[in-house]
Design a protein around this nucleic acid. Sequence first.
DNA 1: ACCTGAACACCGTTCAAGT
DNA 2: ACCTGAACACCGTTCAAGT
Lengths: 212, 212
Amino acid sequence: MARPTSPLLSRGAILTASLDLVDVAGDFTMPRLARALGVSASSLYHHVPGGRSDVVEGLRGLVCAGRMPDQRVDGEDWRAFAERWARGYRGAMAAHPHVVPLLTAQTVSDPEVLASYEALVEVLVQDGFDDATALHVVAVLDCFVLGSALDAGAPAEVWDDDDERRPRLSRAVRAAESQPGDRSAATFELGLGSLLTGLELAHRSGAAAEGA
Amino acid sequence: MARPTSPLLSRGAILTASLDLVDVAGDFTMPRLARALGVSASSLYHHVPGGRSDVVEGLRGLVCAGRMPDQRVDGEDWRAFAERWARGYRGAMAAHPHVVPLLTAQTVSDPEVLASYEALVEVLVQDGFDDATALHVVAVLDCFVLGSALDAGAPAEVWDDDDERRPRLSRAVRAAESQPGDRSAATFELGLGSLLTGLELAHRSGAAAEGA
DNA sequence: ACCTGAACACCGTTCAAGT
DNA sequence: ACCTGAACACCGTTCAAGT
C-alpha cells in the first residue's frame, strides 16, 4: 500500500478510536488501537508524534472538550463558578471513567483544560482571594474532583466488604447502595457542597480579619 | 541451583524490594524486581501467587502499616477521628508518592486498611450519622485523600503553566511556591479543614432537623 | 507525506525440569 | 517446597523501504 492518495489516519480519528477502546476495554495499547483503525502500529506515530502519552493527553482534551467553563456568567460569584467548574470536570471524567487512571500520572497540558484553570484563578482573585490562597483552592478542588472521578470509575466495589469482618462498613455500603441514584454522584455532591461551604467560611473570616 | 537449603525469597522481602524500586524508579516490573533480588522472575510467583497485582496490593499494606487509626482515643469526636484518619492515610501515601497511581485502579483488600475504614464508619455512626450518610462521608474523605496523595506525587508541575497564555495561573503558582513549607501539604490541610467544617455544619443542621 | 514490515528491547505469566 | 530457563503472547517505539 505505502502512501495512499488520501490519508487513512488523522489525529482526531486516532483519539476517537482510542476513547472507544478505553470505554469498552478499560485501556488501550498502540497495537490494538492500530488494529481497530485497520492500520499498522507504526503508522500511528506519523500523526501522534509523542506516541502513547501523546494519545493520553489527547484523550484528556477529547473528554473535557466543551465541558469545562472558561468564564463567569451573569452575577455568578466564585462559589457558583467553582461549583460549575467542578461539576463540569467531574462530569466529563465520569462519562469516561476508565480514562481517569491514565491521566493521573501526567502533567496537564491540554490548552482548553488549562484555560478553565486560568478562569477559575481569575474568578477567585477577583472575589478577594490572594494569589497563593487561590492556587490552594484550585488545587483542593482539583484533588477532590480527581479523587471523585477515580471513585466514579472504580471497580464495582471499592472496598472488599466482608460482612463477617467489617460489619459496619458492609452495612453502610448496603445502605448507601439502596438509595436511589448514583452512589458516586451523591458522594461527589455531598463533598463539593461541604468543601465550598467550608472554604466560604474561611474566606469570609479571612476577609473580615483583613477589614478589621 | 534449583531448591536452596534456606529460601532465598519471602513475601516480605519481595514487597520491601518493590517499594524501594518504586520509590527510586517511580515504578516496578517483575523482571526488575527479580534482578534487584538476585533471582529469576519466575521465582517471584512462588511467594506472590497473584503476580504483579498481588505485589501492588501488598504495597498498599506496607505503605499504610501502622499509620492508619483503627480506634478512637480519649473523648475524640468524629471530626477529630476523621482528621487523624485522613492525615494518617495521606501521610502514608505522601511518603511514597509513586505508589499512589499503582493503587488507584485496584479494590482495597488489605485487612489493616479495611479495619481503619471499619473504625471510621463505626465512629461516624456512633456520633449520629445514619449508615448511608456515614458511607458517603467516608467516600468523600477517601476521594479527597486519594486526590491529595496523587497531588503529592504529581510531576514537579501539575499544570504546564505558561506565563504568556495563563498569566493568572502562573502568578498563583509562583505565589504558592514562594510560601514556606510543602505546597501540597498546605493544600491538603486547607481542604481537610474546609471539608470537615462543611460536613459538621450539614451534620448539625441534619441532627437539629431530626430533633425538631 | 504517509504507510508498511521488520526489528529491538522490553513486558507478565506459565510450566516442565531440576533438587 | 523452591528456584530455574525456556517459552508464549504480548508491549512501545524506531527506521529503512516503498510510493
